[in-house]
Simulated assay, not measured.
Amino acid sequence: MAMSGGKLPRQRMWEAIRTLAKSNVALTTYNVSRRSGLDDEAVRDYLRALGKAGIVRQLQAMARDALWELVSDEGAEAPRVNKRGERQPPEAVECIWRALRILGELNATEASAQAAAGGATISEHGARIYLQGLALAGYVSRSGGTPGVPAIYRLLPGRYSGPLHPIYQRCTYEQVYDPNLDKVVWVKGQQPDPAELSGLRIEVERLRKLLDEWLWANEWTDAQAAPGGLVERTQAEIPE
């Protein structure tokens, strides 16, 4: 899993594409590669896929490089397209994470249905495993779960760390990785291991990243506003 700063490679490429498209710097494969920190071949593949999807257009071929134009800025999230330019559905757990943010609580059956509504597929059992992982990491609380009464998983106040879904990793050991924080927030068997401490770590990391953004304020030009809804996100952290 290649991640840096909590962002997947295509997300970093997309942000570089959007930034270059709004600047006086040429939108080329080389410049996207340098700005995103990814190799030229990976950038070239993604630009070609975006081109087939009609999101960018190649203006000029230059040996192994090319000059591109952003035709359709689809917002902050990197477009999901395969090599043929076909749209790819979101991951099931991404749909569940988004539904938790909107609805506040879910049981496993509802989580599976929310994933299906988003164009993804996950069994009720798979949804339950993911929700249990979020509970272990301190993102949600769990209530119920007796025979005939499905367990309800409720998103805890202040535990929504961002739009990227926390990843419940089950390989040789269990852990939850949060790409919004670029941090493993829970590991099975860690001491101490109360969910409340995991939740507090999530809040601290989120606030630290918010503070880091403000510390870069002197890099903004007079014509620039606070990036990424920073003011609104900061106000949301201040209790009424």
Rank of each mutant, 00 (worst) to 15 (best):
V140W: 02
W14G: 02
V231P: 00
G6N: 04
A78V: 05
L155G: 03
P150G: 06
D222Y: 11
V140E: 01
A236T: 09
R201Q: 11
R128V: 02
L134I: 05
E240W: 12
P147C: 08
G162Q: 05
L8E: 12
V140Y: 02
L134C: 06
A223D: 13
R201P: 01
Q132I: 02
A49L: 04
A111K: 01
L136S: 04
R35V: 11
D193E: 15
L230A: 11
R57Q: 15
P192G: 06
L211W: 06
S141K: 08
A120E: 02
D45I: 13
S72W: 09
L20Y: 08
R206K: 15
E77C: 11
A236W: 07
R12M: 10
L136N: 04
G229P: 02
E213L: 13
L200W: 05
Q132S: 07
P89G: 09
N107F: 07
A116W: 03
K7Q: 15
K7V: 01
S4E: 14
R154E: 10
T19K: 15
D212Q: 12
A53V: 07
A26T: 11
Y173F: 14
Y168E: 06
C171I: 11
Y130G: 00
I129L: 05
A236D: 14
G119W: 05
M13Y: 02
Q132C: 03
I129H: 00
L230G: 03
G144S: 10
R34T: 07
E196I: 08
I96D: 01
V187K: 05
E232A: 15
P166I: 03
G6Q: 05
T19R: 12
E74P: 00
R57Y: 10
G133P: 01
N31C: 07
A113V: 10
Q114N: 00
P90C: 06
E205F: 14
K7C: 05
S23K: 06
T19G: 13
V187A: 13
E15T: 14
Q169C: 14
A108P: 01
G138I: 03
L211C: 09
D182V: 03
Y177K: 08
S112K: 03
G51S: 14
P239T: 14
A108K: 02
L50G: 02
A223T: 11
E196S: 13
Q58N: 13
V93Y: 02
A66H: 04
R170C: 12
W216C: 10
A76M: 09
V185S: 00
T29R: 04
V81A: 00
V185C: 06
V25S: 11
I129D: 00
E240D: 09
T172R: 15
M1W: 13
L27C: 04
A61E: 13
P79I: 15
A236M: 09
G51C: 12
L230H: 04
A49F: 03
R48P: 01
Y168M: 08
A78Q: 05
G199P: 04
N218V: 09
L131Q: 01
D65Q: 13
V43W: 01
G148L: 12
V140C: 11
R64Q: 12
V149M: 13
R154Y: 09
V185P: 00
V93G: 00
E240I: 10
A120C: 05
L155D: 00
R101A: 13
